[in-house]
Nucleic acid binder design. Sequence first.
DNA 1: TTGACATGCAGGTATTTACCTGCATATTAT
DNA 2: ATAATATGCAGGTAAATACCTGCATGTCAA
Lengths: 106, 106
Amino acid sequence: MDADKVFKALGDPTRRRLLDLLCEKNGQTLGQLCENLDMARQSATQHIDLLEAANLVSTVKRGREKLHFINPVPLHEVYERWVRKFERQRLILLHDLKQELEGEDQ
Amino acid sequence: MDADKVFKALGDPTRRRLLDLLCEKNGQTLGQLCENLDMARQSATQHIDLLEAANLVSTVKRGREKLHFINPVPLHEVYERWVRKFERQRLILLHDLKQELEGEDQ
DNA sequence: TTGACATGCAGGTATTTACCTGCATATTAT
DNA sequence: ATAATATGCAGGTAAATACCTGCATGTCAA
């Protein structure tokens, strides 16, 4: 998993919209996705290229069409690497912050 | 939660390193963090500003020092909004993809 | 109170990003 | 074969990003 590519891919509203669109209906063509985007098809392609580079979307050519599918694995890995670690320390960290802030008053 | 700010903040190795440093030892000063970064202090400040804007880090002034604390809440919200949704559909989506690919061969 | 220390603020630059337009290619349908 | 359709490829531009340097401000300690 390339955390950089995954987070950068997710750090754009157009690309998150694309993932949401594919969540609603998987396997859509480029044209179908573009209907919901309000930008030139070529621009959408560039966004999709980044999603593919982050391995968040896989594509399959069918004739002249390109079908797009979500790959949830990198998001799962992001969760394992980043979220769980923070979750585990969540209460501890909040406790530290509270103590530090209280220390300020004394 | 501003997904854009959170993901953009996470989409940079220096900022993820900062979060890891704070995970190791919460409440570090700017100077302490900079010792581990290999860039000008002013550059590190700009990264920290983005982490603060994304609400991933909170700071407290103590005398001439600035202490930094992790806030795990936005990561939790990112998880709720983005990861769980995809996890839920994980097997279904892989099944869809498998079927689509098999359909290609026929 | 003066010097050392920790941080803030103001710019400047090179790279990356997010768009676009124009044209080329490949596939399907008539 | 030809026209319509779906996508690919090659550039060009404006804005955002990630660095930097230089100087200002505020705090502590001798």
